[in-house]
Design a protein around this nucleic acid. Structure first.
Lengths: 338, 338
DNA sequence: CTGAAAGCGCTAACAT
DNA sequence: ATGTTAGCGCTTTCAG
């Protein structure tokens, strides 16, 4: 009996009732008697009926799909966020349409345009690097003016009025730097491949502020444009300068720093302490395991999804910004007990 | 002028022509004169018209969306495949609806059901662990009988008739094992967290075959059920037995093996050689960097997408299985020159 | 070359 | 409590 898809109309004619009766029965309308509801529902199962989502969406203006725009799918952080989003969304009966902007403004814009063509009820996104460099926000505002709510996470823009979920970037590097200072480090290098993003800037500020507070210690900053040059750059710095602490603004550079320092003959954490960002698989499995600021990516995804779904059910809510606090996960690249 | 979304009907009334004329003009129908085509198209841009994908899909039975079902989003391999899929799909004007089965049969089944409700033109998927353990294939056959083509990748089932993209699992571990033998290893441990999947079984067979060929060397196999027990299990083996080579059937256990062996006081690769699977960030960034079998995940994704899209355009094609050959990436966990 | 009209599968007033 | 009907926005015969 389970076979080809069947339509409402066909089901109605099998049951010899009208389509609207079937539709209402399936949707548990108060207008329909319990008896027919039961009859319709069992028939629906028997004939393997399931509604055509396109038709339903066309009619109700609801697709139960939320679009997710991720800047970089290689970054473990975003993957964790995605996990959080997927879990929460599927719990609430929503599906996710995942798209990647690859840090490109044009791709991001094109993605939003396609998402605005009726497929999704709302959008979760993190701004691409290029978008933040260019300071563009029109494309985001435009999709919202089309009635599609957007919740931004991680990389946001103050000028966009919408729900946001961010981490306390400034404080996280501020505290990370203080930890290294407490452990005795005085020559702390800050490594960032995201110095052009809002979050990258805030992380730098936290680092710089801690140094200033601590007797105006000298800043050492390595901004990375291309990953391929990074190794050479860091090696040069380690050869020419004394460095006894490193703070990396993302996971990958943190891990690379561990490996490079280690090959450079430095003992970790005896000679140099290192703190990274994102508590992902890389950090857990490096040698030694990397002390890192956990951004609670899954939680960010979960909260962002909740906020978006809340808004879908009540568009009158005030816009809010939620800050997810980071946590320092102490592991082998920093001295114990500090 | 760029503002709210506008419909075909509205555009038609602005231009004082019929909706069908507008529709045909936009779709470059031969029935429409060049003059009106031009007029319509410029107006479409001026008034920021773009078609409602739901309505279009309802009518044409084409959504330009392909569903992707991934068993485990933490696995770097699948993420790489996803990248390949996304890139190829977006190049061809398709979007992807990404879903995760989390290695659960029920979730996989539910996902396929939802994907069969009209949202997607076709499906790319890799079977979940549980699905393979249970040997279930009905849910896949059912969605295909609903007219939605499926292309399986990596974890496939011979009993399902569809397009497939796989790697040469047997050969890859066969050659990997031979490499370790050539380097002098005689006590080679095979670690697998996927021993219940088809690919896991084939990888085991390749390993076993190489040992048998080489004078019936003794097999040592560690099958992992739970990651959390893994560390203890491996430590026990390393304490009680002589092991001078390890082949891990996936990336994560390969990396963990490196760390555990290293903490165990074994020098890598002098005392023990290790080969992992998947050429991901973890392997590149371990210490020492892991020698690994690259499965060319992006290529798998690209090819699978191509095959699916080809079938969407011509459902009469014969089903084919494409094998993507693995490549051994030699790095620091195996001795040079062997 | 253009337009009227039917209909994809569904929901929801509005009858009855 | 059930049915009739009018669309959602689009494509596509079929007429003109």
């Amino acid at each position: 009996m389970k076979n080809k898809k069947i339509t409402l109309k066909e089901l109605a004619s099998i049951l010899k009732v009208s389509v609207s009766t079937v539709s209402k029965a399936l949707n548990d309308s108060y207008e329909i008697s319990e008896a027919t509801k039961k009859k319709v529902k069992t028939a629906a199962i028997k004939y393997n009926y399931s509604p055509n989502l396109l038709a339903q969406g066309l009619k109700t203006r609801r697709t139960k799909i939320i679009g997710v725009v991720i800047p970089d799918m290689r970054a473990p952080f975003f993957i964790r966020v995605l996990r959080g989003i997927e879990k929460e969304a599927s719990k609430k009966g929503y599906n996710i349409l995942t798209c990647f902007s690859n840090e490109s403004f044009e791709k991001e814009k094109a993605t939003l345009e396609m998402l605005s063509q009726g497929n999704v009820d709302g959008i979760l996104m993190s701004l691409s690097k290029e978008t933040q460099e260019l300071g563009q926000i029109d494309h985001v505002n435009e999709i919202m003016s089309n009635g599609i709510p957007v919740t931004l996470f991680d990389r946001v823009d103050d000028r966009i009025e919408c729900d946001k979920v961010i981490i306390n970037d400034f404080e996280s590097t501020y505290f990370a730097t203080k930890e290294l200072l407490k452990a005795g480090a005085r020559n702390i290098l800050f490594i960032s491949p995201i110095s052009t993003t809002t979050i990258g800037k805030n992380r730098y500020r936290g680092y710089a502020f801690a140094l200033r507070e601590h007797g105006n210690l000298e800043e050492k900053v390595l901004s990375i444009e291309e990953y391929k040059d990074f190794s050479a750059d860091l090696n040069r710095i380690l050869s020419t300068e004394k460095v006894d602490g490193i703070i990396a603004a993302n996971e990958l550079t943190g891990i690379s720093a561990v490996n490079i320092a280690s090959r450079h003959g430095l003992r970790i954490p005896e000679d140099i302490s290192i703190i990274g960002f994102t508590n992902g698989l890389l950090s857990m499995n490096s040698n030694p395991p990397l002390t890192t600021m956990s951004q609670h990516g899954k939680e960010i995804g979960r909260v962002a999804t909740t906020k978006l779904l809340d808004r879908l059910n009540n568009s009158k809510l005030d816009y809010t910004t939620t800050v997810i606090e980071t946590t320092l996960i102490k592991r082998g690249t920093t001295r114990l007990g500090f």
